[in-house]
Simulated assay, not measured.
Amino acid sequence: MTNLPLPVPVPRTSRRRLVLESYLGFALFALLTMVLPPLFRAQGWPNFLVPVAVLPLAIMVIRCSYRLLQPQRLGIADGADAMLDERQLLLRGRAYLNAYRVLGLLIMLGLLYISLAADQGWPMPHGYPAWNLLYMAALLLSLTLPSALLAWTEPDPPAD
């Protein structure tokens, strides 16, 4: 049996900044991905410049999301159930429960909007890029939300 290394304490402000960079960065990436192509076409610029323009932002989002996928790198205890104490197991279970509640609520609101938009003529995603961004958002949230909730709510480590 191998023991996981003890998590290195990371201040709450650093963890929260990482969560905000990941989610707000993705929102900005999605917005730019939808807004820039028409602007570039209007200027007569080639379409291949759009990925070049959003690449640094995409790299930042991937880097932040990767860190959220590894909670032990944020100072959050993670591992097999046998390696965690009761408090850590309770916190992890609560984070998963809250993450699934948030994700379920977002999915239900999205479905409600799509059903109303179809009847009322409201704007709806159309085309591959828009639906792909929605899929990437769902993937990002489903994979990182439990760790993001723990990173956001866990108190600062005690000072030595």
Rank of each mutant, 00 (worst) to 15 (best):
Y66N: 14
L133D: 06
L32Y: 00
F26S: 03
L90M: 11
T33Y: 01
A118E: 15
P46G: 03
L84T: 08
T33W: 04
Y96N: 00
Y128N: 03
Y100E: 10
L90C: 05
L111P: 00
F29A: 03
N47G: 10
L32R: 01
V61G: 01
R92M: 06
D119V: 14
M136C: 09
G93I: 03
L57H: 07
T33D: 03
G44S: 09
G121S: 13
N98C: 11
P38L: 02
A30D: 08
Q70L: 12
L49M: 14
G25P: 00
M136G: 02
A53I: 05
F26Q: 02
L90R: 11
W131N: 06
L69P: 05
Q88F: 05
P46D: 03
P37E: 05
L31S: 11
R67C: 04
R92E: 15
M136Q: 14
A95T: 03
D119N: 12
Y66R: 09
P56Y: 09
F40K: 04
L69C: 11
Q88D: 09
F48Y: 12
Q120N: 12
G121D: 10
L112H: 08
P51E: 06
A77R: 13
I76W: 01
M124G: 03
V50S: 00
L69E: 13
R92W: 04
G93A: 07
G75M: 07
